[in-house]
């Protein structure tokens, strides 16, 4: 089992049981207790849990409204790693666009100490950045898609007129050789078409589970963006395709 899968499992157990035990986990995953303690350290740093003697408990204080709203909390570790790489690309003074979704939310979490302008059509991303002194946050407004934090429609589109973006990070729901990049709704796709027009640099962010999948509405060909941030588990044929088509593909390899 991969370290990330293990961490995701530990999170699941924590959600369900509210507590975990080092010895039990070490048996469950057949890894050393040292390895488990390292995983727990990592999760504690993220504010996910509080360590106790021989184990840890869920940090319930830190669970924001997100858990209620968001349905897509798969591959959260991979998204965190994508967020880390993305933040390396952002320079002070730039105007950044973050599209809706948990992947871009992770980017927001990783860039709080920068001095930039962030435009987004995701309520949660705007909220996440509420305390970042150096970041000017612009939330587009617009129609809220039910049970999500995504804003779309003509009000949202209007907010984009007359502004220019240095780097637009666009999260997608499907990456596929045939269907290209796809998202959940037609309205979202319309928003992204507009973003493409006003942005200097389009960067696609998608964790590995999005590959070989197709969602409802098409954004464009796989060659529409010159940079992609994803995970090492992506199928090799995609890595090859990107390299041979002059697209930079970034993935994270976590070392201690």
């Amino acid at each position: 089992m991969f370290a990330i899968e293990r961490i995701n499992k530990i999170k699941e157990i924590l959600y369900k049981d509210k507590r975990v035990d080092v010895v039990e986990l070490s048996k469950l995953f057949s890894v050393t207790e040292v390895t488990i303690r390292r995983d727990l350290d990592k999760l504690e740093k993220e504010g996910f849990l509080i360590k106790t003697y021989g184990g840890a408990v869920l940090n319930e204080e830190n669970l924001s409204g997100r858990a209620v709203l968001e349905t897509d909390d798969s591959a959260i570790e991979e998204k965190r790693m994508i967020g880390k790489i993305a933040s390396q690309m952002i320079e002070n003074g730039e105007a950044i666009f973050l599209s809706p979704g948990t992947t871009c939310l992770e980017i927001a979490k990783n860039m709080k100490n920068k001095r930039i302008t962030v435009v987004t059509n995701d309520l949660l991303i705007g909220y996440e950045l509420r305390d970042s002194a150096g970041i000017k946050v612009i939330v587009t407004g617009g129609d809220l898609i039910k049970s999500t934090s995504t804003l779309v429609g003509s009000f949202a589109l209007q907010a984009l007129s007359g502004i220019y973006i240095n780097k637009a990070f666009i999260g997608v729901k499907g990456v596929n050789f045939d269907s290209g990049y796809t998202v959940d709704s037609y309205e979202e796709a319309l928003m992204m078409q507009e973003i493409k027009k006003i942005s200097n640099d389009i960067i696609i962010v998608a964790d590995y589970t999005k590959f070989n999948r197709t969602a409802f509405a098409r954004l464009g060909e796989l060659t529409m963006a010159k940079k992609v941030i994803t995970n090492k588990q992506v199928p090799p044929e995609y890595k090859k395709f990107y390299f041979e088509n002059g697209i930079k593909m970034f993935t994270a390899f976590e070392f201690e």
């Binding site: 090492k232 090799p236 044929e237 890595k239 090859k240 390299f243 593909m249 993935t251 390899f253």
Partner: peptide
């Protein structure tokens, strides 16, 4: 191979 190449750069 190309796919390992991309991995090595990362």
């Amino acid at each position: 191979d190309v796919s390992s190449k991309v991995d090595i750069y990362n």
